[in-house]
Design a protein around this nucleic acid. Sequence first.
RNA 1: GCGGAUGUGGCGAAACUGGCAGACGCGCAAGACUAAGGAUCUUGUGGAAGAUAAUUCCUUGCAGGUUCAAGUCCUGUCAUCCGCACCA
Length: 803
Amino acid sequence: MKSYNFKEVESKWQEKWDKDKPFKAIDFDEKPKFYVLYEFFNVSGNLHMGHLKGTIPADALARYKRFNGYNVLFPIGGDAFGLPAENAAIKHHIHPKDFVRKGMDTIIGQSKKLGLSFDYDRIICTSDPEYYHWTQWIFLQLFNHGKAYKQKGTVNFCPNCKTVLSNEDSQNGKCDRCGGDVIQAERNVWFLKMKEYSEKLLQNVDRIEMEDSMKEAQRNWIGKSEGIQLKLDIVDKSGKKVSDLEIFTTCIETVYGITFVVLAPENNLIDKLKDNVENYQEILNYRKQTALKSELDRISQVKDKTGAKVEGLFAINPITGAKVPVYIADFVLNNYGTGAVMAVPCHDQRDYEFAKAFNIPMIQVIEGDVSKNAVEKFEYIPKNYKMMNSGEFTGMKVKEAKQKIADMVEEKGFGKKQVNYKMQDWPFNRQRYWGEPFPVIICDHCGIVPLDEKDLPLELPTVDDYMPNEKGDSPLSKATDWLNCKCPKCGRNAKRESDTMPNWAGSSWYWLRYIDPHNDKALADPEKLKYWGSVDVYTGGREHVTRHILYAFFWQNFLYEIGAVPTRDPFTKKFGSGLILDDQGKKMSKSSTNGVSPLTVIDEYGVDATRLHLHFLGAFEDNTPWTYNGINGIQSFLGRVWSLPDILKGDEVSEKHKMILNKTIKKVGEDIENFSPNTAIAQLMTFIKEVRADKYITKEELRQFLIVLNPYAPHITSELYEYVFGGNILNESWPKYDEKALVSSTIEIPVQVNGKLKATVKIEKDSTQDVVVSKVKEEFPQLADGEIRKIIYVPNKILNIIK
RNA sequence: GCGGAUGUGGCGAAACUGGCAGACGCGCAAGACUAAGGAUCUUGUGGAAGAUAAUUCCUUGCAGGUUCAAGUCCUGUCAUCCGCACCA
């Protein structure tokens, strides 16, 4: 057989697949459905190694499931709206529209070069009007159901990108896109009521099959905590009650230790009571000062507590009657809990630092050493400390007191049990050009008027100047022809919303669109939605999963509740791929300077070799350093596969190869389903090794082996199959393995003396202990010498002789 | 600080519910074929001692513990990575 010319073979099959479309998903097919989803590509450059790490195991799964008789939906598309595409377009001096058109061609072309078996008839692109028509439609539903509102609010703002960012986009006080410092700014902000869904999202997290670390990250993000909402009286100097103040605490057991109360700087109680506040101006100054701080400053100054005393107001501890001072400080967040806290310096480190800085007295209510630091709950609870200075609860164990105090508080009406969530409503607008326009009209007379569904899509106008301006106004505010319109309600002059949606909008529902990508009557046909249901396996990088998955859960929950989709869960199972690292141990991506382009590797070694090598390097979920080392091993493996016809002898599966063949079928199938390509490939290599040692392979063995290798190396196996058997390997089905053929009738078991390995003996499978022991006595009499105290035998596993 | 993970040969890494640690591959060594080998094939390869043997000892970050038996379970500890972070 002539030597393997991968270029010829690979392009031959890729052209054939492109023409015959064997990977088309069939709506309503009788076969059981299986939906494999790979996170769609960001349309901002070439595919990189990270993409291969995620897509190829998904491709293997799709191919495997087709062999197993499933009607597989394995689609692809482009995430094209939003900052990445817009920034890339600006960098290349191309209009985003043209950039995206080219970018889509690039990623689709490269996908085909990788041999990815997507259904290329279902390509979607989030910036196509036929797609964002339905993104806008979903927004309309959210708006009409009261889940979207516009409000002035302090938001994360990136002065560099000149846009509002969600918390998710501004982690660590840095803009997720440009890396610049984020500041707090007062803006008109569209919010989606995501907070309402906190509990449902937690349930979603419980239901989805996913790695623990990802689940925990999401639970942390939602940040559920249970505690007590306590009501305190606010009194003036003379002791007259002027207001209520509610605070939230998870540590009600420390309530006897309150020595002051702190409000968030923005807390509006101050404004309501400004006549009682003697130093109102000072308070306003402090407020201004905090607002100017960037998010980063706030974080880096964690240790330096700042704040101001509110003169003229006091809070009354409802349990002790104690009168304590009121402060404002920026360590209290206005948007969490009630924007106010009770401060117990002995048992909360922040309160401790604040009390030290402001010379506020402390009361210790739980034992422990508070001379240098607070004794906090993660210490006093596990160590079972006792209460002190706490009236009737003094001397009680904390755990017990916590419960009793909570009951008492509820009984006496001082407060009630309360659950809080860290997660906030989702700021949903950006002052950028390249995004979905909001389908609403802003009328001075009627307020915000939603468009009629029949007027969708509201197309993004093509403008020449799409750069954001200095003030941070949206570029669309300059597109006056588009912006000015008539109010559909009253007919007066009105304006459109000049902000656009964030890039998360299009990605928060795209798996639904794949089900019916060209439907112009609905986001997807309900019957088709029912047929395809939830995504069975979803894979992609693990970088943005926390946010993306939560947004996805949120939107699908909402769509489910309004009856727009028949399933509540978008995804059943999620695998997150690790990163490919460069030689510096850094993430390899398009921005990495040490990046290796997959196209280069493919050009030199072929797609099949690249697919195998990348996945043989390490486990799917682990980060893997890229190296060419070992790729020659993959090449010779493929070379040996290619020359299998040279040692073809016999037809049926031979007795000698029965076991290895069955093992390989089983192991590879399981590994494909579990996303463990590295061990699957090892098993395939082991098979080749054994067969070559015996210097023959039968026709039937070869046929089954080719099918089993096909999901990872689709080109070479297609070619060999055609050469040896004629016809297309894709028409085959996955071979069945025989459970009985997996273990031979004689097995070798280790013999230990006092837990140390001394010998092995060959026995019949399922032999009894007596048989094994007498065998040992016969073959290794010295091991059974002397007094034997005990013998432990685990059938078919091990024999341990204790002397 | 909180949460999650990882730590195994010269290297990338395997190891199911505790049961022969190091599968598979790279690299390395020796050999075969060869005019030649950076091609191909065969064999060997965790470390140390021992004679190149038999054999013995050591070995899954470190220190303890449970167990007939620990990479795997428990306690403590160190290092690295990731996520969150003044969330009351």
